[in-house]
Simulated scan of single mutants.
Amino acid sequence: MRTRLSLSVRGKRLLRELRRLRDERQMSPEDVAGQLGWHKTKLYRIERGESRLILDDLDELLELYGVRSPERESLFKLGKDAWKRGWWLAYRDLYQGESFFVMENDAAKISVFATNLLPGLLQTEEYAREVIRVMVPGATSDELARQVAARIERQGVLSRPTPPQFLAVLDEASLTRPVSSKDVHDAQLRALIELGKRPDITIQVVPLHAGVYMGLWGQFTIFEFPDEEDAPVAYQEGLFGDVYVEDSDDLARYKLAASKTRDVALSPADSLALIEKLSKESR
């Protein structure tokens, strides 16, 4: 079975546009391959994201399809950005694939529903180090240091000039569960308070008195993208690997869990007040 490349949102958009251009010209992949002297399966692999599209091949396709400026320049820019090397490639030996990092990097909105531990994008370095040490018991000291470095580098997505909208819905238990020392725990709570004041970050807390709610099925993330044609993707991490959900029916269950979880969460203002209260109590 072929493995699809971890395309960025720009890469997926480019492939959609190339398929549209071919369909408008009523050409089959075999027609295109014959006129360009390509193997008959080459365009199939490119359009399915199974083969990397180099710029020379893109140039040939656009010439065949008769695409002129300014659309040509726009598609070339997509082609240059589609498979751009991300910072995460320096850590690829630590993780299975890069799809998560690609989606997190390209998303316009990231919604995390965290019932057990605080989301990685909100963790302080000390909190992250302790969590990774416990959750990855076989990691060497070097691997631990690199995993912490990768987690902190991930947080750069929230420091961009135009960052994605970030929503974190936390369970109160994740705020009260001791992690390392009291100093580390309190520093993490105070960091949450400061992050929650930013206009691009929304933090809500489900209080313990809310009882059982749908989000307790497990921690998950929903990525939404700038282009309406790029459907949202739900992500859930587990002991036996990562799950990415794009099917509309399956995605609807995650959206329902998200909605039900927010229904029982405190407002952002009340949530920050609760975190401030917990911070004072932890000192």
Rank of each mutant, 00 (worst) to 15 (best):
L43E: 05
N116S: 15
E172H: 05
S174Y: 01
E276A: 08
E153I: 04
T261S: 04
E228T: 14
T124M: 06
I110E: 03
L58P: 00
R16K: 08
Q188I: 04
A33I: 11
S174L: 03
D183Y: 13
A258F: 06
V157F: 06
A231R: 15
S28W: 03
L274Y: 00
K182R: 15
P207A: 08
D263M: 14
A187D: 15
R45N: 14
T124S: 12
L278E: 02
E71H: 12
Y244W: 10
G11P: 02
P137A: 08
G86Y: 07
T176V: 11
T41E: 15
A150C: 11
F101Y: 09
L55R: 09
K84S: 14
D227G: 04
V184N: 13
G238V: 04
E229Q: 11
E228I: 15
G156W: 05
W38H: 11
K84A: 15
E24H: 12
F76G: 00
S282Y: 13
L18S: 05
S259F: 09
E30W: 08
G120R: 03
V67A: 07
L239S: 14
G156A: 08
M103P: 02
A114H: 01
E63N: 11
S159W: 10
D247F: 06
Q219M: 14
A168Y: 00
R48T: 12
R25A: 13
V169G: 00
T202Y: 03
V243Y: 15
P178E: 08
T176H: 10
R68S: 14
M1K: 15
A252L: 13
K77H: 13
K77G: 07
